[in-house]
Amino acid sequence: MDKTINVTLKIWRQAGPKAKGEFITYKMDNVSTDSSFLEMLDVLNEKLVKEHKEPVAFDHDCREGICGMCSLYINGHPHGKDSETTTCQLHMRRFKDGETITVEPWRSAAFPVIKDLMVDRGAYDKIIQAGGYVSISTGGVPDANAIPISKDIADEAMDAATCIGCGACAAACKNGSAMLFVAAKVSQLALLPQGKVEAARRAKAMVAKMDELGFGNCTNTGACEAECPKAVSITHIARLNREFLKAKFKD
C-alpha cells in the first residue's frame, strides 16, 4: 500500500533576475511517500500547467546524485536536512504529514537568481576555467603499477574528486565563501603526479578568480562540510591554504 501525506509548500517565486520575488503557498494533497522531492515538484508543476499557471522553475538533471545540477534550500538546509544526500535523492518519506516545507533558491551574491528556484552557478564554471584542469593530455588510464601512488593519497584525491560542484557549500556559508569547492578542485589535482606540476599556478589562479567573483572570506565554520552532499572535508581547505601560501611565498 502506498502511504500518502499532505504537505504545504512555501516556494520562492521570482519572474526574472531583476523582478521582485515572494513566497507563494501551495497545498499538496496525497503525496506518495515513495516519491522523491523533485517528483513531488513535478506533480505540482503538472497541476500548475493544467491550471494555465507558470510552473516553478528549478534545476535538475541526472536525478541520481552525480551531476550536481539540483539545488534548493529546503527547510533551512541546502539539499534538505539529510546529510550526504542531494535534493534529487531526498524522498517524501522524510517529511511528516501536515508539514510546511519552505523551499528557497541558493542565496549568495555570486549566485544570482535567474528565475524562481533557479540560480546562476556560472561562477563555479569560471573558477574551473581559471585553472581547474591539467593543461596537457595525460593519455588514457595508466596501468596501476606504472605510477605508484599510495592508498592514502589516492583515497584523499578521490574524496576531493567526489565534489559535484552543486554550490551547497557557498549556499550554506554565512560568509558566502566558495572555499570548499575551490579546495576540493585544487586538492584532487595537487595530490596526484599529473596535477602536481601546475599546482602552484592553479591555486593562485583559482583563488584569484574566486575573489574576483565576489565570494566571501572563509572563517572555518565548517557549515559547508556539514551540508555538502558528498561530505567533502574542510581539511582540503587547509591544503588549499597551504598550496596558496607556499606559492605566494615562493614568488
Binding site: 512555501k10 520562492w12 520575488g21 513566497f23 534550500y73 527547510n75 533551512g76 538546509h77 536536512k81 519552505t102 528557497e104 542565496r107 549568495s108 551574491a109 555570486a110 550554506a172 556559508c173 554565512k174 560568509n175 558566502g176 565563501s177 565576489g214 565570494f215 566571501g216 572570506n217 572563517t219 565548517g222 557549515a223 562540510e225 556539514a226 551540508e227
Partner: peptide, 18 residues
C-alpha cells in the same frame, strides 16, 4: 563577507550541529 552573502537572506535557516 556580509556583502558576499547578499542582501536577500534565507527565510528559514537552521544551524548545523557540527
Amino acid at each position: 563577507n556580509m556583502r558576499a552573502r547578499g542582501k536577500q537572506r534565507y527565510d528559514v535557516s537552521e544551524n548545523q550541529k557540527s
